[in-house]
């Protein structure tokens, strides 16, 4: 995870744990301040994603929460054996399923035309109008519109489970709704059909973006 140490398997309590040896100060003592360092977070987050998505190709994997650190191999083994039953249940739940992220964006409304300002105060007034317009565009309805709820219902029918979307991209302009779903692999075609149907239905009004397949990050509860 630090970009230098390899990721190695460790057998514990019947599971294979994939671990990487990292500095205690960077990943435990200073993790909070490192999490606020966007460069560190981006680099380490992408590394985490690469490792986990590689492992997922070899079989069912329960991704540990980002930043999970055990001080010793013994404390890891102890923790795994204590949670063995719950881990197995969770592993079976996510096996043969992928996480997908779905976002619905409002299509941009036409921007007010800005003519050349005739004076300084005129410029400021126009600027205020433009800013207010931007702020309004950013405001999202608290409850999704009836249209979006139809998409949500369709996705819920084919998903094993759904989870609210992540917080990181919540500030994206025009984002109306987002969700993560745990989709059984055999329902991939149904998923594609739903996205296609709603994209066609919402032409020029809303845009659907979807990403995946992701490891089941949002659906590990142990």
């Amino acid at each position: 995870m630090d970009g230098a140490a390899t990721v190695e398997p460790l057998l514990c309590a019947g599971f294979t744990c994939w671990i990487s040896r990292v500095s205690r100060s960077v990943f435990a003592e200073q993790i909070s301040s490192n999490m606020e360092d966007l460069d560190w977070l981006a680099t380490t987050g992408v590394r985490h994603q690469r490792v986990v998505s590689e492992l997922v190709q070899r079989g069912a994997v329960l991704p540990a929460r980002f930043g999970t650190v055990f001080h010793t191999e013994e404390s890891l083994t102890h923790n795994i054996s204590a949670r063995k039953r719950a881990l197995l249940k969770s592993l079976l739940h996510v096996a043969d399923a992928d996480e997908w992220g779905i976002k619905v964006f409002m299509e941009q409304q036409p921007q007010p035309v800005v003519a050349a300002a005739s004076s300084g105060s005129d410029y400021l007034r126009r600027k205020a109008v433009a800013l207010r317009h931007q702020v309004e565009q950013r405001k999202r309805p608290r409850t999704p519109s009836a249209e979006v709820q139809k998409l949500a219902a369709a996705l819920e029918q084919i998903a094993l489970e759904t989870a609210p979307g992540g917080k990181v991209s919540g500030g994206q302009a025009g984002l109306e709704w987002q969700v993560s779903i745990l989709l059984p692999r055999h329902r991939q075609e149904q998923f594609n059909a739903i996205i296609e149907r709603f994209s066609r239905l919402w032409q020029n009004q809303r845009r659907i973006e979807f990403t995946g397949p992701w490891p089941p990050y949002s659906f590990v509860k142990v």
Binding site: G45, A163, V220
Partner: peptide, 12 residues
């Protein structure tokens, strides 16, 4: 980052 961090962050 959305997906990686969605379940929260664990320390120690």
């Amino acid at each position: 980052l959305d997906h990686v961090l969605n379940a929260g962050v664990v320390i120690q």
